[in-house]
Design a binder for these strands. Structure first.
Length: 432
RNA sequence: GUGGGCGUAGCUUAGUUGGUCAAAGCGCCAGGUUGUGGCCCUGGAGAUCGAGGGUUCAAGUCCCUUCGCUCACCCCA
């Protein structure tokens, strides 16, 4: 076998899937409480959707998209992020026609052609939430609150929330010029990337990771001094609401995010123990995006979290997710005649909601007992020669080692009794 | 796209300056207890030493190439 999963993709194995399912349940549960509705958009879209939305000179569009030509020679792209498709859907289905704002969430795979490393893959998964049609900072606060609520519910309480305002097209334009002016004398010292950014996207120079650039940026005037009244007020009020909600944050004036469509609020949630890829979620306001798609001028704010990075953070912090997956019943049958009786019995047990399994390998009693033990079975049902002749099965409690003989047709009832006896089903299978 | 590290049984690894070097632990299977798990003991299966080429009497062990994994840069989830 020489075929492996494509580079940067992963098989999520059964042991891991348990965690994914738990996490997905948490996400759905929280979104339900905040009244965000799930939306599922296609995995691929027309390439122009992302080119226009994310921005032509961003890394994603320049070199990270999985783009292909379909059989009708249209350019399609595996989605690299979730906001643009959601906005496309909002417009296509004329959701602006109903009561605003529209609160949506999504969950699923995203694709970016990059060299994989810790916490970064070519196929990765995001959960995202978007509020479209409201311009007030309360909504920014709610989106942040939703995100932090999720992390907190998972036991992640040592994360850092960074917020910033990058202004609107008006004041950002002014600041851009201020930046250029301030850096004009340093142009020779900037790294090659920043040299390009200087012309095309000066704000991105602020969070350059190069040492020299960082030094140069230290005494650059903050964008906050140049925000217009509206943006400054928005940012101020957002902080007020975050305070009111007891959400702690730090203001990072150099936080600039990679997509062109952001305006005013941007934020990022990081965990410093993750390695180089330490952002486990981020988002911001994108008031101009919908217009660039030809829709009505519509304010919006959103957020996205990386599922893999959340899981990685949980692992690094040694946080266990609360789930249990032991077997309630393991059935041991020792001969052919027993199967005629045991298999229907197993079916009944399962039908009553118990998690039950059986050995199909024809192993010895001892081996089957070992298997039952390994699988963490709480009870074993034994049907062998003696039991067949007596008409009774043995029910063995694996934890205590006690056994009882129960007539075949009363076995299921017996388990139901046991489930009732054992303190709200803690010992036995837990049903929702 | 550019660097660094690593590729030996299912997993984690040991393998001195090339010469019984193909091992150990865990896991798996079976037996010790002719119908009873967890502990212990014994045995068994399981590796073209990532792949290809080269040097040599002899190569996991040296050289080259290649593939893969991994970390980092860039950037982001």
């Amino acid at each position: 076998m020489d075929i492996t999963a494509p580079r940067g993709t992963n098989d999520i194995m059964p042991y891991e899937v348990r965690k994914w399912q738990y996490l997905e349940e948490q996400i759905r549960s929280i979104c339900r409480r905040y009244d965000y509705k799930e939306i599922r958009t296609p995995i691929f879209e027309e390439t122009v959707l992302f080119q226009r939305g994310i921005g032509d000179i961003t890394d994603i569009v320049e070199k990270e998209m999985y783009t292909f030509i379909d059989r009708a020679e249209r350019s399609m792209t595996l989605r690299p992020e979730g906001t643009a498709p959601v906005v496309r859907s909002y417009l296509e289905h004329k959701m602006y026609g109903g009561p605003q704002p529209i609160k949506l969430y999504y969950m699923g795979p995203m694709f970016r052609y990059e060299r994989p490393q810790a916490g970064r893959y070519r196929q990765f998964h995001q959960f995202g939430a978007e509020v479209i049609g409201a311009c007030v900072p309360e909504v920014d606060a709610e989106v942040i609150d939703l995100a932090m609520h999720l992390y907190y519910s998972l036991g992640l309480d040592e994360l850092e929330l960074q917020i910033n305002s990058i202004g609107c097209p008006l004041c950002r334009g002014k600041y851009r010029e201020v930046l250029r002016a301030a850096l004009a004398g340093h142009r020779e010292s900037l790294c090659s990337n920043c040299a390009r950014r200087y012309e095309r996207n000066p704000l991105r120079m602020l969070d350059c990771k190069e040492k020299r650039c960082k030094e140069i940026m230290t005494d650059i005037p903050s964008i906050h001094e140049y925000l217009c009244d509206e943006c400054a007020d928005h940012f101020q009020r957002l902080q007020g609401y975050l305070n009111a909600l007891s959400i702690s944050y730090v203001i990072n004036p150099k936080l600039v995010r990679g997509f062109d469509y952001y305006a005013k609020t941007v934020f990022e949630v990081i965990y410093r123990g993750l390695g180089a890829q330490d952002a486990i979620g981020g988002g911001g306001r994108y008031d101009g995006l919908i217009e660039t798609y030809g829709g009505p001028s519509t304010p919006a704010v959103g957020f996205a979290a990386g599922i893999e990075r959340i899981l990685l953070t949980l692992e690094r912090l040694g946080k266990e997710l609360p789930f249990q997956s032991q077997l309630d019943v393991y059935m041991i049958i020792l001969n052919e005649a027993g199967k005629k009786l045991g298999l229907p019995l197993l079916k009944d047990i399962r039908g009553r909601g118990f998690k039950a399994d059986i050995d199909y390998m024809g192993r010895s009693l001892k081996s089957q007992m070992k298997a039952a033990n390994r699988r963490g079975a709480r009870f074993v049902v034994i049907i062998g020669e003696d039991e067949l002749s007596k008409g009774k099965a043995i029910i063995r409690n694996m934890k205590v080692g006690t056994e009882e003989e129960v007539p075949f047709d009363e076995v299921v009832e017996r388990f139901i009794e046991i489930r009732l006896e054992t303190d709200q089903g803690v010992l036995m299978c837990r049903r929702r």
